[in-house]
Design a protein around this nucleic acid. Structure first.
Length: 105
DNA sequence: GGCGTGACCCCAT
DNA sequence: TATGGGGCCACGC
């Protein structure tokens, strides 16, 4: 219920918060977890993130395995992912599906 | 109240 | 395999 009172952005942050360190997720997965197809809206929610320090938005990548964009720059995002233990090759995640975290059991 | 944009995704060529 | 075009939802003006 309380989750329903949260805005779309807040829900995105909550789901993203469920992603453990060393793992990554995709915009589509987050949208799917919200029972919506608003993958665009998820990106917009992250783009306007003012909780950059609180929300690990750098763990969100594209379904292609590409890093995608980032508030501090895609390069910075890659550095953070590598720091998390995720192997990044040419701005793309190696075996990214292995690091992909699924919200459904 | 309506239009355009965006840290995207999928399909067809 | 790479490139282009269309479509989805939420937010700002």
């Amino acid at each position: 219920m309380s989750a329903n009172t949260l805005s779309f952005k807040e829900r995105c942050y909550q789901i993203l918060s469920k992603v453990p360190e060393g793992k990554v997720t995709t915009y589509g997965e987050i949208a799917f977890a919200l029972n919506c197809r608003a993958y665009r809206a998820v990106g917009r929610a992250m783009a306007g993130n003012e909780k950059l320090v609180v929300i690990p938005c750098h763990r969100v990548v594209r379904s292609d395995g590409s890093i995608g964009q980032y508030a501090l720059g895609s390069e910075r995002k890659a550095e953070l992912l590598e720091s998390e233990g995720v192997l990044v090759k040419d701005r793309k995640i190696e075996n990214f599906t292995a690091y992909l975290h699924r919200f459904s059991t």
